[in-house]
Design a protein around this nucleic acid. Structure first.
Lengths: 304, 304
DNA sequence: TAAAAATACTCCATAGGTATTTTAT
DNA sequence: ATAAAATACCTATGGAGTATTTTTA
């Protein structure tokens, strides 16, 4: 009895997608009889048909559906291996897709992206922005190679590495009369301005301030830090800012920046990837570059 | 440029294991030059060597190590697919390995195994016994196909299905003067006899009785229910028994069996498997047989 | 009867075998 | 000097192509 080949699995999957041997053959760059042969062998190997030939179209049998579930796992792993091998040959066949959360992207990216493209000149980066939950989903689905997050990933199925600590800083309206360092307890609970649901920074701010999410009177939820800072500038309340945002956001004269008294009020940024990613070996380098970029950015803004 | 084949990966893995082309060739049932050819192609495809030829022996290069990590994933998935295909051809190539926890195995197995071998006559079953933690590890490692547990598996990487509820019953020394149904609060905490650490039943009993694990004076921890029942018979205390054990353990005249007043004092037995197991389609059948067996056993012992 | 898959056959790419050379200790 | 891998060359299996037949809606 013959052994199953990757070629057979590729053909079977494409026939399932097309529902038609002829069109599938085109997509495989072979003729229709070649395809029929391979599928015949596969079906003989299984002892049962994978497809129902209905004349005009072809449908996957119930057994074939299960078979293809397993086959897809093999093909994904094989695809990862090919990508990994391409990398070694210094010919990345596809770009490395990086995702960042919205409270990091606008501040870090202008410094990170030039550093990455310079020091990993053979890799092409494609960048996208999204909230934690969506980025993690994309990573598991294989739509994204790495995500830069402010939280720990779920324990299983992910690899991760810490980048650097990003301290929180208080932004207050001008003339607040506050003196450094500021203790959060001296500020009224109901004047903290927060991001909308789904931003990890929102939860971390609530946590740092020991606030409850459902305090009445805090109806407003902003979609970006920039929006929040407009409100702070207009005297509506306070907010916490991640230090990496200072370079861009601190220029406003109407806003005061204050150190916090609370020790350890910070988020730790992390790189997260799918276990088994073909780029795994690269991620330590990417992480190192991100660390250097982030630390340089923080040092220049909150340094001596 | 050529595409990577499963054959090449199999050869590479065996060379890595043997550290020797000649011996690897034997294990692959081909000649040494055939192997060298395939590896050469693979190394050309990667653009970098997978093995260091040291004269007497062969060592995997650092790159080769990473390559083989990916390759192993492909080969495992392919092996699962082959096993799945064998099943469809009604010619299971390897036995289905079932593991059970020690507080289920001796009671259920004598009824379950005959039922399984009769109704799934083409499958050969290999059975082993172990505590929850070890069984789950074996399942993830691929050393076991299914485990019958008394607890929920970790959420990710496992599939599972509930079998049936196994109520707890009180075993007391003869002449206890207790009347049905018994409320656990009326019994002294320090006279409950427990299994050793690692048995899920121990934790479930502690939970059902609202006991703390570290009550002083409970130094003893038995390794089996049989041992515990000897102690109950000798008047040392009480214990909870899972109902499936009654058939075997209730014969002792020195022991009284009592219903519990507490509602819902029971464990739910479950089948657990690794996501992607080639036997996945079979497990619903196995579960159905286990359900029927278990329910019949319970009905005959605690029924009307 | 028309569209699609299966079959028949031919060809060639490639895996594998045998004989030999090269390499590294 | 010797064990082991690489190379050279030949053979044969099987994947793919062209032409044709069979199937079914």
């Amino acid at each position: 009895m013959h052994t199953i080949t990757l070629r057979q699995l590729r053909y079977a999957r494409i026939i399932a997608e097309e529902g038609h041997f002829g069109r599938a053959a085109e997509r495989c760059h072979v003729t229709q009889p070649a395809l029929s042969q391979q599928i015949k062998q596969l079906e003989e190997r299984c002892g049962t048909p994978l497809f129902d030939r209905l004349g005009k179209t072809v449908r996957v049998t119930p057994y074939g559906r299960d078979f293809l579930t397993h086959a897809t796992r093999v093909l994904s792993a094989a695809q990862d291996l090919e990508t990994f091998a391409d990398m070694a040959a210094d010919q990345p066949s596809r770009p490395l897709r990086l995702g960042l959360i919205p409270t990091v992207a606008p501040y870090l990216l202008p410094h990170l992206l030039p550093a990455l493209t310079q020091r990993l000149s053979n890799i092409h980066f494609v960048v996208s922005e999204g909230k934690t939950e969506r980025l993690l989903a994309s990573v598991t689905e294989g739509d994204l190679d790495i995500a830069l997050l402010g939280t720990m990933p779920p324990s299983s199925g992910f690899g991760d590495t810490a980048l650097f600590s990003d301290p929180f800083i208080l932004a207050a309206p001008g003339g607040s009369g506050l003196t450094n360092p500021v203790s959060l307890h001296q500020l009224p609970d109901d004047r903290f301005l927060l991001l909308e649901e789904g931003h990890c920074l929102r939860d971390q701010m609530l946590d740092a301030c020991s606030l409850k999410a459902d305090i009445p009177g805090r109806g407003f939820a902003a979609t970006s830090l920039t929006t929040i800072l407009e409100l702070v500038a207009a005297g509506y309340g306070y907010t916490l800012l991640p230090a990496i945002s200072l370079r861009r956001e601190m220029s406003d004269r109407r806003i005061e920046i204050h150190e916090l008294a609370a020790p350890g009020a910070a988020r730790t940024l992390r790189l997260v990837w799918r276990t088994g990613s073909p780029y795994e070996a690269l991620f330590q380098t990417v992480a190192q570059i991100a660390r250097e970029t982030g630390e340089a950015l923080l040092a220049s803004d909150i340094g001596p």
